[in-house]
């Protein structure tokens, strides 16, 4: 299928009308990012593929009852997180998979690892084809045009000046 630039809302509207092409386009747009997320959390390609497939199958099944203000990115974000936790819980209930969880998942719950979630997202400059984006990103706060103007009189000074004027008058 050829990729297109149809807006998401149009694709969602067409999905509600049982359009399989629109559904395929939506699944192509998101499946790989969901897969990499699941892989980073579970270290299992099979589990990641199964989770992504089930999320999209559930979306197809519920296509008739989507709300008017439906956001597919928000829906997928919520569903993938829920599915990852569900998968971890299922693995912990099986004795065979406990060693996988001990090696791959438990270290992620260290305090030092969890602190990373509070840090801002770092952009990888090597992914940008030219340095334009990275150059734009490195503009300092002082260099922004709205921060260049330094008023010669402060609010405090203005208040004093007005008070003196009123006293004289």
């Amino acid at each position: 299928m050829s990729r297109n630039f149809t807006p998401e809302q149009t694709l969602i509207d067409r999905l509600a009308a049982d359009d399989t092409t629109a559904f395929e386009e939506l699944s192509r747009r998101y499946c790989y990012s969901l897969y990499t997320y699941c892989m980073s959390k579970l270290n299992s390609s099979e589990d990641a593929k199964r989770i992504v497939r089930n999320i999209f199958i559930a979306l197809w099944e519920d296509r008739q009852s989507l709300p008017i203000d439906f956001s597919i990115s928000l829906h997928l974000y919520t569903e993938v997180r829920k599915s990852v936790v569900q998968c971890v819980n299922n693995k912990l209930n099986k004795d065979a998979d406990i060693s996988v969880i001990e090696d791959g998942v438990i270290p992620g719950f260290n305090v030092a690892e969890l602190q990373k979630a509070k840090q801002p997202v770092k952009f990888d400059d090597s992914n940008t084809s030219n340095g334009q984006h990275s150059a734009l990103r490195t503009i300092r706060v002082e260099e922004q045009w709205w921060n260049r103007y330094n008023p010669s009189i402060s609010l405090k000074g203005l208040k004093h000046a007005l008070q003196n004027m009123l006293n004289l008058w």
């Binding site: 399989t20 559904f23 395929e24 699944s27 192509r28 499946c31 790989y32 897969y35 593929k49 992504v52 497939r53 999209f56 199958i57 197809w60 099944e61």
Partner: peptide, 21 residues
């Protein structure tokens, strides 16, 4: 490899969609 993974997942989803119809 990325394309292969993407195609595999999409093919599985499409197979379900077609069979459900």
């Amino acid at each position: 490899e990325r394309e292969l993974i993407e195609n595999e997942i999409v093919a599985q989803i499409n197979a379900y969609v077609v069979s459900s119809q």
